[in-house]
């Protein structure tokens, strides 16, 4: 069965690009535009992995991550942060909030593959 990835980013360009690259490496992708939409989607069906942006309207990635980790089954989902923030303190903050991996934008297929492999979903 195909693994599922929820791509959470307020940029439709990033969502489309990530979706295309991830589908090429065998993922079934769904999309959300902000943290709240992502949580709503997770209540319906928990994906195997989430690619999560930081700065988004309505609910940002850090708040989404912390809330999701408290959901039943929310500890099992692999979460890869994907942000333009690239300071050490920010990466640290995301990991401490419960992210499994961190991607600094911009990214390409190799980086996505590597990170997805590192968290064990590929």
């Amino acid at each position: 069965m195909m693994k599922t990835c929820l791509i959470v980013d307020d940029s439709s360009i990033v969502r489309r690009l990530a979706s295309k690259l991830l589908e090429e490496i065998g993922f079934e992708c769904t999309q959300a535009e902000d943290g709240q939409q992502a949580l709503d989607a997770c209540k319906v069906k928990m994906p195997d992995v989430m690619l999560l942006d930081w700065n988004m309207p309505v609910m940002n990635g850090i708040d989404c991550l912390k809330t999701l980790r408290a959901f039943p089954g929310g500890e099992d989902i692999k979460i890869i942060f994907c942000s333009t923030h690239s300071e050490m303190a920010q990466i640290q903050e995301a990991l401490e909030a419960g992210a499994d991996e961190y991607i600094m934008k911009p990214f390409d297929r190799d980086i996505l593959k590597t990170k997805f492999r590192q968290v064990g979903v590929l």
Partner: peptide, 11 residues
């Protein structure tokens, strides 16, 4: 750097 280095290792 991120083409291979896990985030905790990077830090």
């Amino acid at each position: 750097a991120q083409r291979g280095v896990p985030a905790p290792t990077l830090l």
